[in-house]
């Protein structure tokens, strides 16, 4: 409560940066999904921080909906990973180059 909001916002920025770096450098589709989760959590932390510092509950309601969309995204994404793995026996995104022009 007495921790300054900027500390939490800096922590969220750091978490977002780590997630973005992992998304840009790792090649396993599963790890990339985990990095997307890291970035979503960083945004959730920012929402809650502003909700607390501005005394406005809309930020927390937004986080609720972000969590629902993240759950749906993970469900469909992992189903795609399973479908791709069945066909290619691999889960690295470098092997998915058939649509290359």
């Amino acid at each position: 409560m007495t921790i300054p909001a900027s500390w939490f916002l800096t922590l969220a920025a750091l978490l977002f940066g780590i997630g973005a770096f992992g998304l840009l450098t790792r090649r396993s589709a599963l790890i990339m999904f985990m990095c997307v989760e890291l970035m979503l959590n960083a945004v959730n932390l920012t929402f809650v921080t502003f909700s607390n510092s501005l005394h406005d509950v809309a930020g927390q309601a937004s986080v609720f909906f972000v969590m629902v969309v993240a759950a749906a995204e993970v469900t469909v994404g992992l189903a795609i990973v399973v479908a791709v793995f069945r066909r290619r026996q691999s889960n690295t995104v470098d092997d998915l180059s058939e649509l290359k022009g």
Binding site: N44, L45, V63
Partner: peptide, 17 residues
Amino acid sequence: TLLGVAVAFIEQEAHFL
């Protein structure tokens, strides 16, 4: 990481989240 974010939520009075 997710548990750490949950602790940060509690620290900011977002108990439900």
